[in-house]
Design a protein around this nucleic acid. Structure first.
Lengths: 192, 192
DNA sequence: CTGTCCATGTAAGGCGTTACATGATTGT
DNA sequence: ACAATCATGTAACGCCTTACATGGACAG
């Protein structure tokens, strides 16, 4: 289960509360592994009962206890095992492509409107990813990135590359539909 | 719920049994919306109780009844509404990127092994998609594609484009890691 | 005579979402 | 005064997966 291991990954750098973890997720891996609050708390409870994390409870009169989670040796071992184990390819789901698949059931105008909407979403996402990338670049300045930052940035590069590929696909579809041209590409075109 | 609408989409072409639908899914939208057998049967039951499909039961002595599902007028209307309605962007999950994000916790050699494995998966997927694409191309021959086939093929183009983008990203990471070079790209590089 | 295809489903469990609940502190 | 932030959780529901169950027809 990936959420468990992502949490262990963050705790391998420092002990954190559930609340802090939620913020860390939202600022780092959100775009390829979003996690909501309830889920994080439940997963922390699971990790605790499995002995992969320790819980330090800090009582604060009148307020809810603060719970700080530390990774255990067993947790470290499990994390190491997981990150170096090749994953079986997961299912990919993209509901938008179902709409495209059945595109012949709408007018080309309706299809163009869906594509237009999708391209706006993709551009917004690209903007966010680029901004995060620039933020990292400023942090490292002229020097070479640390290994930590380097690997972090690779995930942003992946996100940027795949969103750009999707946008290029949309442009190519828009061009064909605008001209009433229902010709598919050749595989050579697609390879270029 | 997308599975419901994908089923309605197929039934809008012809009446099918659950068994047939499973085969149709596996031969068409599997790579962006996989569906397993139990799920299809349960969803058909739901669609039936919602009046979006009719059930024609064909008794066959000694064997299980054959149930053929036909889309109703209400089903057609619901399908039309859905395919032309822009979707709110869904969450994207890619566990492999969690491993990459925490890449600094392994050796570069371990990271390269994961990348190598991933690139093999991607190439296998690309091979399948290209084969499906060629199959469509042969079906249409020299003539222009029908609107139906054109839109079907667009989803394959999308899959091919995004897998190729992922492969290029892997190549670029491999080149850097092989040279012990932890430098990120510039955004201009990424845009090219 | 063994396995695969045809054809239907149920049961249990996992992961994720949304909504609900509490209550102090800090900022505008 | 009001909203946002801090900080924890529970409850209910939905979708998907895996495993189980049944049993005839047909091919090698």
């Amino acid at each position: 289960m990936s959420l468990k291991h992502a949490i262990l990954g963050f705790l391998s750098y420092q002990a954190l509360s559930g609340y802090d973890l939620k913020k860390v997720f939202d600022r780092s891996v959100r775009f390829f592994w979003p996690a909501n609050q309830s889920q994080i708390y439940r997963t922390l409870a699971d990790l605790h009962s499995e002995g992969l994390v320790n819980q330090e409870v800090i009582s604060r009169e009148e307020r809810l206890d603060l719970k700080i989670y530390q990774i255990t040796a067993a947790g470290q071992a499990e994390f190491q095992r997981w990150i170096t184990t090749p994953l079986v390819p997961q299912d990919y789901r993209e509901a938008f492509l179902i709409q495209v698949y059945f595109g012949a059931k709408m007018t080309d105008g309706e299809a163009l409107a869906l594509l237009q909407n999708m391209s706006q979403e993709l551009e917004a996402a690209l903007g966010q990813l680029s901004e995060m990338y620039r933020f990292y670049q400023e942090k490292i300045g002229a020097a070479a990135a640390s290994r930590d930052l380097f690997y972090n940035m690779l995930t942003l590069e992946y996100g940027i590359a795949s969103n750009q590929a999707a946008l290029q696909w949309i442009r190519s579809v828009q061009a064909r539909l605008a001209g009433g041209d229902y010709s598919p590409r050749t595989l050579a075109d697609l390879a270029g």
